[in-house]
Simulated scan of single mutants.
Amino acid sequence: MNGSVRMGRVLGVPLRVHWSVPLLVMLFGYSLGSRTLPARVPDQSSAVYTLAGLVGALLLVVSLLAHEAAHALTARRKGSQVQSITLWALGGMTEMGKLRTAGSAFVVAASGPLTSLVIGAVAVGTGIGLDTVSGWSMPAAVLLWLGWVNLVLAVFNLLPAAPLDGGRMVQALVWWRTGDQDRAERAAARGGQILGFLLIAVGWIAVLRGALSGLWLALIGFFVMIVASGERRRATLTPALRGLRAADAMTSPVETCQDWLNVQRCVDEVAVRTRHSTLALIDFEGRPSGLLHLPRLARVPASERETTRVRDVATPLSKCATCAPDDLLEDVLEGLTPGRGLPVLVTDGQQPAGIITAHDISRIVQRHALRGTESP
């Protein structure tokens, strides 16, 4: 996710934290310390309320991390590779490879809500015990709040719509029932789109009635709808790509440009005659050294084109997505990241073989649809 920073590892999995997490801690810490705790435990100092609110908010982030770590650990036990865990203001996301069976998908999806239910039950039980036995009212109040929040999150996550865990569980059940994983993914994504729309509508109705908390509900609905729409597009894309290799999609032969040329020579000798918007850069030995997007050339001022090398305005090979001609196209696209997305440079040994662009993928999907092989 854009805007996230790597913060170490959890269970051997890279952990990334979005910039919105500190905002989440401040908002929940303020709400807990200024409203919830004073109402439950009156006559305490502002410092005590502030500290307790901050501790409660941090414990909530830890419980969200435990939820995602349960997904990661279960997925790894089921044979799936886990790429990363990302925490952000609306929860978390665990990036993992596809699971092989519907049963594995169901267990992985259920592990997160189950973990939240356990945390919620333990926190509520411990809070009640502390309040009853020891009279530690402030820690008890924080634990009770933490427990109820986790229980609500668990129940919400069980709603039958992707990308929520309940949607993943429904998806696994449809997959098991029909044997059609693509159909199951599309069904869960449609459910997510409907749920997102309903949450947005309910949130705005609440705002119009004076409840500003409806903005939070509408934001969650917007996120659910956007992610569900993306997953529905991906579920449509997957059947079209299945079995294809990178060589089946790439534009070839690839247009190349020497990386030591200045921008003006590149424009005069290469850019004006090419039919492509992206060129493969090569070094003195003919090996690929990066990708050059022609719109970047246009942004170089005329006064600097004689002194600026094309490699200075290109994307270096270290930041490009690359693959071999025989790589499965579905695996290539699944491995793309925000920092390394389309276009993909296809290399055959030490030579550039082609480039895969978004237009190439779109063309494949259109041909697949024309053949009528996509089920409704």
Rank of each mutant, 00 (worst) to 15 (best):
L217P: 06
A228N: 12
L219G: 14
G167C: 08
A240G: 07
V227F: 05
S252G: 06
G191R: 12
R232L: 13
R232E: 13
R177N: 06
R234H: 15
W204F: 14
S229H: 15
L164K: 11
G179T: 04
A249S: 02
W176H: 13
D165T: 10
G191P: 06
Q181T: 01
A188R: 06
D248Y: 06
A188Q: 09
E185F: 12
R242E: 09
V174T: 13
L244E: 00
A249P: 01
A206S: 07
M169T: 08
L212R: 14
D165Q: 08
A235F: 02
A162W: 04
E231L: 15
D248A: 14
R209P: 02
F223W: 11
A228P: 10
D180S: 08
G243C: 09
R245M: 10
V227R: 07
G230V: 04
L219N: 10
R209C: 07
A162C: 08
V174F: 08
W175C: 10
G243W: 08
M169H: 11
D180W: 14
A161M: 12
G192W: 02
W175G: 02
G192S: 02
I194E: 04
A188K: 05
I220F: 11
R186F: 09
D182A: 13
G214Y: 00
L237K: 13
G196R: 08
V224N: 03
L217E: 05
L244V: 03
M225S: 13
R183Y: 10
M250W: 14
L164Q: 04
G210C: 12
R242F: 13
G166V: 05
V170R: 13
L219W: 09
R177P: 00
A172L: 00
I194C: 09
I226R: 06
L212Q: 15
A161N: 06
A161Y: 13
V224L: 05
A246E: 01
G210F: 13
M169S: 06
M169D: 11
Q193Y: 08
P160R: 07
R242D: 07
R242W: 07
V224I: 12
V207M: 10
A162P: 01
R245W: 10
P253T: 11
G203S: 00
A189S: 12
I194P: 01
G167P: 03
D182F: 07
A184Y: 06
M225K: 08
G203V: 00
V202G: 00
V227D: 04
D180C: 11
A161G: 08
G191V: 12
Q171M: 15
L212G: 05
A162T: 10
F222K: 11
A211G: 05
R245H: 14
P239C: 09
A161W: 11
L217Y: 00
I194V: 15
P163R: 06
M169A: 14
L219M: 12
L244H: 01
V174C: 12
A201N: 07
I226C: 05
R233S: 00
D180L: 13
L198T: 07
R190C: 04
T178A: 12
